[in-house]
């Protein structure tokens, strides 16, 4: 087994009496999609926040490419190769689609301190941004104001911004949220191909997508990982069926 790209070791986080993350150890290996599922309130968002640096764990560590990044800020983790997408699109709504992708390209270049010259005429940044937009099918909308995009297109743009970073690992918080059947199918197809570039830690409620995509699934209930395994193992696991899948499966 190869060294994991991203891993948590015995991560714990409580809010008062509520234990949101309880001794969570998961890993993400090269080339895989590892899905995290669990009922509402299971602590999925809290876990993601700790992995990406928005929230400090009470105990435990987060490792990226074999390096302990627990004490690093969100932006340092991004620079180290971690790209996340948000459950609720976090995009500069007043600006164009291209501007949002350019922000990613600027982040990848790591230098926002140039105060002169039009950013839209910077060939290197622009090429990088357009390439990402092209991959998610938004190249024709580069000049559109982000606020005027449909919900599905905003989800695509979320992914495009992550792509501009050329990351070593993706953390995606419900990329299918609010997508229709068709949109979900397109996104599933896209993520399917993306895992070869960088592995994806995928938090998702859409079970069809999870079962179609995931190499491994971890089930989170009340902050604890109650099972980790392949799709078939998880489907067959009695504890998972009782706790979560129930009638849905």
């Amino acid at each position: 087994m190869s060294e994991p790209i991203l891993a948590t070791h015995a991560l714990c986080k409580s809010f008062g009496a509520l234990t949101a993350t309880d001794d969570v150890s998961i890993d993400l290996r090269a080339g895989e999609i590892h899905a995290i599922i669990g009922p509402n309130g299971a602590g999925k968002s809290t876990l993601i926040a700790q992995i990406c640096g928005a929230l400090a764990p009470d105990a435990g560590t987060v490792e990226l490419l074999g390096r302990d990044v627990t004490g690093l800020s969100t932006q340092a983790r991004a620079q180290a190769g971690l790209a996340r997408t948000f459950q609720i699109s976090a995009l500069a709504m007043e600006d164009t689609v291209l501007d949002n992708a350019l922000l990613g390209a600027l982040g990848a270049a790591g230098n926002p301190w140039r105060l002169w010259g039009r950013v839209s005429r910077d060939a290197a940044l622009r090429d990088r941004a357009m390439a990402a937009l092209d991959r998610v099918g938004l190249a024709d909308h580069a000049g559109t104001r982000t606020a005027d995009l449909s919900h599905g297109q905003r989800r695509q743009l979320e992914v495009a911004v992550a792509l501009t970073l050329a990351p070593r690992a993706f953390v995606m918080d419900e990329p299918m949220a609010g997508l229709g059947a068709e949109g979900s199918r397109v996104m599933t197809g896209f993520l399917d191909g993306l895992r070869q570039e960088a592995p994806i830690l995928l938090v998702e409620h859409d079970m069809d997508a999870v079962f179609a995509l995931a190499d491994r699934i971890s089930v989170l209930v009340y902050g604890q990982v109650i099972a980790t395994g392949t799709v078939d193992e998880i489907r067959a696991d009695p504890a998972v069926r009782a706790a979560y899948l129930g009638e849905e499966a």
Binding site: S73, Q75, F86, A92, G107, L165
Partner: peptide, 15 residues
């Protein structure tokens, strides 16, 4: 301009 609108996004791209 992005930092004004979505600071969390700016952080996630490493700025």
């Amino acid at each position: 301009n992005a930092a004004r609108q979505v600071p969390q996004r700016v952080e996630t791209v490493g700025l």
